[in-house]
Design a protein around this nucleic acid. Structure first.
Lengths: 336, 336
DNA sequence: GCAGTATCCCAAAACGTTTTGTTAAATCTA
DNA sequence: TAGATTTAACAAAACGTTTTGGGATACTGC
């Protein structure tokens, strides 16, 4: 069933069918309606591939979630956030008439060539000077990132808060709850989330004359990584900080558990906060105060932005997502 | 950069280029090598869309996760299993040279027409007489399901255990740990997981002359749903069962918490088991014994099966995935 | 009544491949 | 050496659309 069949059935040329269905050319209203009716009655819908060939617009968006590329195969992890992100992105794409294709790092290994045929990409948490971005730029494929490429401040098509605000809010919250020495535990990926958080923390410490207590721990290490950091703290000469800000929820959960095992009470002795809400932060005891990164909202905004770019909307300021601090038991300590 | 450019550069016809690159026709070895070299040096790779048009093979697989379609928009969580499933499916597809497209129920609303242009579909947990399957069949799109369509026993291209084995294993485990009255809590979706589990449970009860204690609770209700079931049990005239088998991890977690609040001890008073391992079962206290549904392995097998079908491998028995029982504290009660 | 102008429609080109059928040259057979 | 066969390459068709550049036909204005 092709456009030719519809044309024959409706007694017009294929040009007229195409124009009628796409509202493109100039067609008499009656004719257009007739064609539309016939097409509908035949259950015709244009072949997406043929259309794609002619108009080089496939109707598919690519999604690359960079942090997952450092994993062996998406296997373990607390991927809560990314599933919700991917799911919401798919829904938003579908709502706007696009499919959403999940892609792993297209620079490595054999790229299935379809990957470079998509209309545009959403790249979540690019690393500095991201080679994926370079590849897409070489191929003139439009893209939107979630979080900045820290090495390319001139690129503005990105969505998110940039973590600065989150970090500041967390520090403020901890101070308000009486924290005197605040430690931070970042990840090791070179993305804007890690970089910006660290920067904000360092400049706060410098300004306020606070001690810098900084740990870096591989994101993929999960709870075990959090425990390892706690171990370091316990082994150290200096006293345990009275507040710890872990960027990932899993680090926070592991660290909290280890500190409790060592006899510290949360939140009485140590305040614990996570920069990313997850199953682990919600289900720990006590539940851990953390930043809700709003994966659904962020994904939808990113896809929406990309689609509008694809449609030629050029002057468009990316939305700023305002994350929300979920205050829980792990920082429930009141001071006056 | 098209095949024409390569042909010109190599001094041959486009036919020869195509044949050389695809190993199709009969080309002198020297010529073929020359063409391959030239193409490589130019960084040429065939346009996936044009190829798709000619050979009606796009290089993309569709993935529909049916249980997510009952949700408003992938929003709520507890989707641990499905994220891991989708991620692993994407990896496997990519490894085999395909892209993977996430699609919502293509029968509702405006289907982006690209959805029907993909080469094949993986459908996770189809419901009985699934309209999605009907649609795909009408369009001659190959598909593989994860879990059976319970109304179509003649369809054999599905992957998974069918839940019968899992249910039997769980009951055996509970009996071994001294359970006398076993309750089951199923979901409400009409998929093979629910149906088979219930059937197995009922026939076990009939055979052994055991009482039937059956609750059904909407899958999407999560922990709250589990609590609601516990509430029913507490309100009931009959005594609390001494073992409860919830199909979903979230139900199990909620139910366990509520029973504990009511003064029951797990596992001393009540054994709790979940049919699906998740963050909730791992992180509850005590951690809940549950079936690891092996999302990664299942996804990979499903994709592999579909790809082999697409490649014309016709006599292929779908692999049987053997799930594993993760025994945890919630059933740690020994009897002699 | 005739040039000029809208209006409506269509034939054909184009998109970049793969595949079919044909031709030319080289090799074999008797 | 004439004919048959094999080998190697290519021209052209086909895939199903969208878009371009005309052509009819019917209206205007003078």
């Amino acid at each position: 069933m092709t456009i030719h069949d519809v044309a024959k059935q409706a007694g017009v040329s294929i040009t007229t069918v195409s124009h009628s269905l796409n509202g493109k050319g100039v067609v008499a209203a009656a004719t257009r309606q007739h064609v539309v009716d016939v097409a509908a009655s035949m259950g015709y819908s244009a072949d997406a591939i043929a259309r794609g060939l002619r108009s080089s617009r496939l109707g598919v968006l690519g999604l690359v979630i960079r942090p997952l590329d450092s994993l062996d195969s998406y296997q373990p992890v607390g991927v809560d956030y990314f599933m919700r992100f991917a799911g919401a992105a798919a829904v938003e794409a579908l709502d706007r008439g696009f499919g959403l294709m999940l892609v792993r790092d297209p620079t490595t290994s054999r790229v299935p060539d379809i990957a470079l045929a998509v209309d545009g990409f959403v790249i979540s948490d690019p690393i500095g000077n991201d080679p994926v971005i370079a590849l897409l730029n070489r191929n003139d494929i439009p893209l939107v990132t979630v979080g900045r490429d820290v090495e390319h401040p001139e690129f503005t098509d990105w969505v998110g808060t940039g973590a600065n605000a989150d970090c500041a809010a967390i520090i403020a919250h901890l101070c308000e709850r009486g924290a005197k020495s605040i430690a931070i535990v970042t990840g090791t990926d070179v993305n804007s989330w890690n970089i910006d958080s660290e920067t904000t923390y360092l400049s706060w410490a410098a300004e306020q004359g606070q001690p810098v207590i900084l740990y870096r721990q591989d994101e993929t290490s999960g709870e075990a990584g959090g425990r390892a950091v706690a171990e370091e703290m316990l082994a150290s000469e200096s006293p345990i900080p009275d507040a710890v800000y872990c960027l990932t929820g899993r680090h926070a959960a592991g660290l909290q558990t280890r500190l409790q095992e060592a006899g510290y009470s949360i939140p009485a002795d140590v305040l614990v906060v996570a920069g990313s809400d997850s199953e682990q932060t919600r289900n720990s005891s006590p539940p851990i105060t953390s930043v809700d990164l709003m994966p659904e909202r962020t994904a939808r905004e990113a896809v929406a932005l990309l689609v509008r770019r694809l449609e030629g909307d050029t002057d468009l300021t990316p939305p700023l997502i305002e994350n929300e601090l979920r205050i829980r038991e792990s920082t429930n300590r009141h001071v006056n």
